[in-house]
Amino acid sequence: MAEDETALIVIDVQQGFDDPRWGPRNAPGAEANIERLLTAWADASRPVVLVRHDSVENASPLRPGQPGNDLRPFVAGAAHELLVTKHVNSAFHGEPDLEGWLRARGIRRIVLCGVQTNQCVETTARVGGNLGFDVTVALDATHTFDLEGPAGMRLTADELATATAVNLQGGGFARIAATDDLV
């Protein structure tokens, strides 16, 4: 593969995120944008990596053996070169070794999309940036859920997505882009 090749990494687009336990979400068009990215990468014969979160928590809908662990059908059926499974937020801490796979192919640029914006997508972007990859996050091809923190502090899913965009681009970890600019 050419050194300027860009891999699309689709993170945790799993059926378990449809569970109401997660609460209110944002970005109702995220799945359509993820599908557009998958189609564009397939049409250009560019590499695609799928990532699945295999939760170790017994009550999690993302636990292996539960229907929620399955990738959503439009992702599961997508052409891809690698499936990474993980138990933590970063796809770079899964199996098989994502960093090694990318480097063996001379891939330095990655585009991230998926679920949750402020969790696994943001963490993968930060680690990827720290490892020296040129990272872009297709923000409108991600979604997240409202979240409560300490002392009753609460941020909406939209506020969390904004914070992620500011953290990643402002902090020099990744560029933020729209799906339209990437397809």
Rank of each mutant, 00 (worst) to 15 (best):
V88M: 11
V88W: 08
N89T: 13
N89M: 12
N89V: 07
N89E: 10
S90V: 07
S90C: 10
S90N: 09
S90A: 11
S90E: 02
S90I: 07
S90L: 07
S90H: 04
S90M: 06
S90T: 15
A91R: 00
A91F: 00
F92A: 06
F92S: 04
F92K: 06
F92T: 05
H93A: 15
H93W: 06
H93N: 09
H93V: 08
H93E: 14
H93S: 11
G94A: 08
G94L: 06
G94F: 05
E95I: 08
E95T: 15
E95D: 13
E95S: 14
E95K: 11
E95F: 10
P96H: 12
P96N: 10
P96A: 12
P96K: 10
D97S: 12
D97G: 11
D97Y: 10
D97N: 15
D97L: 08
L98Q: 02
L98V: 03
E99H: 09
G100M: 06
G100K: 14
G100V: 02
G100W: 03
G100L: 09
W101T: 01
W101P: 00
W101G: 01
W101V: 02
W101K: 05
L102I: 07
L102K: 04
L102H: 06
L102V: 06
R103Q: 08
R103S: 03
R103V: 02
R103C: 02
R103P: 01
R103T: 03
R105M: 12
R105L: 15
R105E: 11
G106T: 08
G106K: 15
G106F: 14
I107V: 12
I107C: 02
I107K: 00
I107W: 01
I107N: 00
I107H: 01
R108S: 14
R108W: 06
R108T: 10
R109D: 14
I110S: 01
I110M: 09
V111Q: 03
V111C: 07
L112I: 11
L112T: 06
L112N: 04
L112Q: 05
L112M: 11
L112R: 05
C113F: 05
C113K: 01
C113W: 03
C113E: 04
G114C: 09
G114R: 02
V115I: 14
V115Y: 04
V115N: 02
V115K: 00
V115E: 05
V115R: 00
Q116I: 14
Q116P: 10
Q116G: 06
T117C: 10
T117V: 11
T117M: 07
N118G: 13
Q119T: 12
Q119W: 09
Q119F: 10
C120P: 02
C120N: 08
C120F: 02
C120S: 13
C120W: 00
C120V: 09
C120M: 09
C120K: 04
V121W: 01
V121F: 04
E122K: 13
T123G: 03
